[in-house]
Amino acid sequence: MHIKSERAATACGLAAILLWSTAAGLIRSVSEHFGPLGGAALIYSLGSILLVTLLGRPRLRSTPRLYLVLGNALFVAYEVCLSLSLGFALDSTQAIQLGVVNYMWPCLTVLLAIVMNGQRARWIIVPGTALALAGLVWVVSTNGVSLPGIVANVESNPLSYSLALGCAITFALYCNVTRRYASGKNLVTVFFILTAAVLWLKYGLSTETLPPFRLRSSLELLAAGIAMAGGYALWNIGVLKGNLTLMATASYAGPVLSSAFAAVWLGATLTAQFWQGALLVTTGSLLCWYATRPTANKE
């Protein structure tokens, strides 16, 4: 797929956000059928096949070695953390909470863009970021906002929450490293293949066994593979040629879209406090977008 204009590339990035909004619910659903490791390995194996079919075989000869190493490491780390954090969630409601924790990455992407890539921003990015992070804290809190409540919630499943936080950090780094060092190369197919290999290795070392394939579970697996592979194919186009800051700030709407889809798909009941937190995240995103848009920097 050859995209030349920045506007078209940015549109691809925004379409990726819509696809990703279905991913958390689908990954959790697939993990319930095939297990956390087996389900994730199947998703990325199918995604790899779809990407090779859509984008062709990857070409590595002219790829900068630094990006080949850093990009691979960050992408694989993110995908493994994401799939396992959702797969090891105690229930569907916690899986949705973990999905929102993962959505700290747009905030971190903008902040790292300022440090790593010289992105200009006005002072209003500070309250915008604070508001978005406050929304995430509000989501993780189950009954009001209290430190003991947050600690108790995290301690109920420290592995999944740690993995979700790792997701946010590694993907923010990946976006900025790709922008700075990729030299226009799209290696998402290679990244998917390596992620699948790592997950199959972990599966082989585990005690998990794959159950028989049923029609419903197979269709959910196909949908998850399309959501993940299609999302990344479009996102990398946006990262390489589009408006990264606009895409990252627009991604703040992801928690609302992702949670709404997952709640319906998984049959989970979300509290008013959860949706209030999601609204805070979205409001914070609008402030960040205003702070980083080019016209806002002309004093």
Rank of each mutant, 00 (worst) to 15 (best):
M1W: 00
C12K: 05
W20D: 11
S29A: 14
G38V: 03
A40K: 02
A41I: 00
Y44F: 15
Y44R: 03
G47W: 00
T53H: 01
L55G: 09
P58W: 00
L66T: 13
Y67M: 01
A73S: 12
Y78G: 06
C81R: 01
L86T: 11
L86I: 14
G87D: 01
G87R: 01
D91I: 05
T93M: 10
I96F: 11
Q97I: 13
Q97T: 14
W105L: 11
P106V: 10
C107P: 03
T109H: 10
L111C: 13
G118C: 04
G118F: 04
Q119L: 15
W123D: 12
A130H: 10
L131T: 15
A134K: 06
L136T: 13
V139M: 07
V140R: 06
G144F: 00
L147N: 02
S156P: 06
P158E: 12
Y161E: 05
L163A: 09
A168L: 06
I169C: 07
A172N: 07
Y174H: 14
C175K: 03
R179G: 11
R180K: 14
V190Y: 02
L201E: 00
K202F: 10
L205T: 12
P211Y: 00
L222H: 01
A224F: 07
I226P: 06
A233C: 13
V239R: 03
M247D: 07
L266K: 08
T271S: 15
W275S: 11
A291V: 06
N297G: 15
